[in-house]
Design a protein around this nucleic acid. Structure first.
Lengths: 213, 213
DNA sequence: GTCTATATTGTGATAGAC
DNA sequence: GTCTATCACAATATAGAC
């Protein structure tokens, strides 16, 4: 397309298509295992174009990581800092994460791989996400709720950090370990989906029981 | 050293030193991010010697993965198939895994990265581990214990697979997510250790409460 | 903006001396 | 068994035409 002043503009979102392709390839191969050639092929463009838009492989990798992290970090923060009850928070996180990861089961494995082998990506991510006061917002809120409930005798005492990580662990880990779980339990893809569907039902009451005094 | 018949033998365990070095490098860089040169340097030998003992990078990577997996797979299998009570099993797994991973916190991240990006390593591992009947041994035993306890009204019903994965999730995930947890909660290495120490105390009762009817 | 062609470096792997 | 030297190719990145 040619604008009135003569400048050219991409008809379709080439930059976007490249990012989507990079997302797919980085997630399934890992950042270090991914090849720029494979990303170019998946996007239907030439290798050189990847560098035109993102300069380096690392730049592309960072763009992908930020976008991926942005799809699930805010949800847990907002949910945990909300006014919902502890049980409702657990239920909401379970429902949301199991739904999201059921569509993209390799996402947790990719994220863990990335933070383990490229931890340098984390500080800029958290800086861009909202400063480090998220921590205080979430833990303070959870701490208040816990204190109140313990005082009224409706909750077994638990540190806010432990509550938070317990919920996330129960939701995320099964996907991160999906390949080994499938082999160990003899499941195919459909069988794993059933395992997750069952989890959606059993996890909220499991947590609720653990919270009782 | 020269044996009576004239043949030479390594004084020290060179092959072992290489495997230890490969372990360290693969775990911190990931299999694809690791470089043979770095492994050689860490072992204090030449690159060529790596190929002499393990032929290819992939061969070395597989040897490392098998050894690593062998350090924690058997424990969970034997514990879960034992005659301990469900609560005792949870307690034993918590104690063992938190102890092992406290020493090598990057191990879970490495294993998840490896199974996500190189799932082909799993079938041979399980074949060498004891056939696939481990699955039956563990799940059958757990199923019997659960049925018995539900019948006597001392346990909230739960599928054996869910029980198993819940315990493992709560123990392993915090280490796999260690880098992000440290940034999110503002912890240094010492602070993370305290977080894990607290976990050692709070996890067994957390699980025990969740199991109550 | 998008392509082809190429520069340049990195990296797994082997040959061969000792 | 261990080393030095080197091969062969893969992979990121850039130059320059269109």
């Amino acid at each position: 397309m040619v604008k009135p002043d003569g400048a050219t503009v991409a008809d379709d979102g080439t930059e976007q298509r490249i990012l989507d392709a990079a997302d797919a390839v980085f997630v399934r191969r890992g950042t270090d295992g991914a090849r720029m050639q494979e990303i170019a092929a998946e996007a239907g463009v030439n290798k050189a174009l990847l560098h035109y838009y993102y300069r380096t492989k690392d730049g592309l990798a960072e763009a992908v990581f930020r976008r991926v992290a942005g799809t699930f970090m805010p949800v847990i923060i907002e949910t945990m800092a909300s006014d919902l009850s502890l049980e409702e928070k657990a239920g909401k996180v379970v429902q949301h994460y199991l739904e999201v990861f059921a569509r993209r089961p390799y996402l947790p494995g990719y994220v863990i791989s990335e933070i383990t082998h490229h931890p340098g990506r984390l500080p800029p991510l958290f800086a861009a996400l909202a400063g480090t006061q998220i921590k205080k917002r979430v833990l303070t809120k959870l701490g208040q709720q816990i204190d109140e409930r313990v005082r009224t005798g409706t909750l077994a005492p638990i540190a806010p950090e432990q509550f938070l990580i317990n919920i996330i662990s129960l939701c995320v880990f099964p996907f991160a370990a999906r390949p080994i779980i499938m082999v160990a339990l003899g499941l195919d893809a459909k069988g794993f989906d059933r395992f997750i569907a069952q989890r959606r039902e059993t996890l909220p009451p499991f947590v609720a029981r653990a919270l009782r005094p």
